[in-house]
Simulated scan of single mutants.
Amino acid sequence: MRVAGKVIVVTGGASGIGRALVLELLGRGARVAAVDLNAGGLEETSTLAKAGERLSTHVLNITQREVVEALPAEVAARHGAVDGLINNAGIIQPFARVSDLEYGAIERVMNVNFYGTLYMTKAFLPHLLARPEAHIVNLSSMGGFLPVPGQSLYGASKAAVKLLTEGLYAELLGTSVRVTVVFPGAVATNITANSGVEVRQAEGQRGSLKPLPPEEAARRIIAGMEQDRFRVLVGSDARLMDFLYRLAPAWATRFIQRQMRSLLEG
């Protein structure tokens, strides 16, 4: 689905990939409803966009189902219709083993990453099905197909998004709604700070992987959306690990464990 002239809802639009998606969509001629809990971040996105009435901002918590269910009517009132939904909002967990992770942190990650995506999808799907063409894009993660020690619950939430999205793809075949699942690798965002997570790094340790700029990630995601692709792997790391995990899952799992070891020590 070409996005020019369409109305697209983007969650997590206050920063990172979400903000980049908002700006990319506007640059391609779309109207956008940017959703986030961070009112100040949404104001910054609006200031950067300079898009006038083509951009609306909506401050809400996607884990609150009743609030989410009222959003489609609000967006339609501002823009006339809804043609697309990009479920981008997400958080990571504290870097800890499952045995050391508190239930509050587990529930928070599942509520934002999985239930937030589910609530948004359920709320908007009837409106999307009424359109001549429409699209749902859900962001999973490289951690949604590859186990990452210290992020096991985050990975579980993103694996749930993966399977939910693939199931939607199958269920919506033959309808006007296309579905895409996205697997970003390392992208230069402030997700750790937004998630309230501190990252320990051993003295002198420096990552060899250069994260992808969020603007480039957004371009690749929207390109995949416009091409109606089933899966989009964002970044060379995501493509490489997807290949290696399919080829030798146990070896790939041990490889990632070695990379994450320092974050779990101490």
Rank of each mutant, 00 (worst) to 15 (best):
V10G: 00
T192K: 15
A188F: 15
A238E: 01
G27M: 08
T11R: 06
V234T: 07
G90Y: 03
V67A: 09
K162G: 03
P214N: 04
E44M: 08
R31A: 12
E107V: 15
A223K: 14
A202F: 05
G104W: 14
G266W: 15
I136M: 12
K6G: 05
A186S: 11
V137C: 10
D242T: 10
V68C: 05
G185K: 08
A51G: 03
L164D: 01
E24Y: 08
L25T: 03
R78Y: 09
F114D: 01
V232S: 03
G40T: 08
L71T: 01
V177H: 03
K122A: 15
I191S: 12
E216R: 10
G224F: 04
V68K: 01
I136C: 05
V35I: 13
H127E: 10
A4R: 14
T11V: 11
S157Q: 02
V112L: 14
S176W: 02
V22D: 02
H58T: 07
Q64D: 10
F124Q: 07
A156Q: 02
T45S: 13
L173V: 04
T253Q: 12
E74D: 11
G266Y: 09
V32N: 04
N38P: 12
E215Q: 06
G12F: 02
H127V: 13
G196C: 15
R2S: 10
A159R: 07
E102S: 14
A73C: 10
V177C: 07
N61K: 09
T47A: 13
L168E: 02
P211F: 00
V59D: 05
L139S: 06
V3T: 11
E265K: 15
E198G: 10
R200F: 11
Q259P: 09
L172P: 07
I92G: 04
L25C: 12
F95C: 13
L244A: 12
G266F: 10
S140P: 04
A14I: 04
I92S: 03
N87R: 07
K210L: 12
V32Q: 03
G90I: 03
A217P: 08
G41K: 00
L264H: 13
A218C: 06
E171G: 11
M142Q: 02
G207C: 07
V161L: 01
V67M: 02
G80D: 12
E198Y: 05
G167K: 15
H79E: 13
F124T: 07
G40D: 09
L173A: 07
L153M: 09
Q259K: 15
S176L: 05
N111Q: 15
L128M: 13
L85T: 02
V3S: 01
K158A: 00
E44D: 11
L85C: 09
I191Q: 11
A33R: 01
L128I: 13
A248Y: 13
H127F: 09
G167M: 09
G266Q: 14
N88T: 04
D242N: 14
L233W: 08
F145R: 03
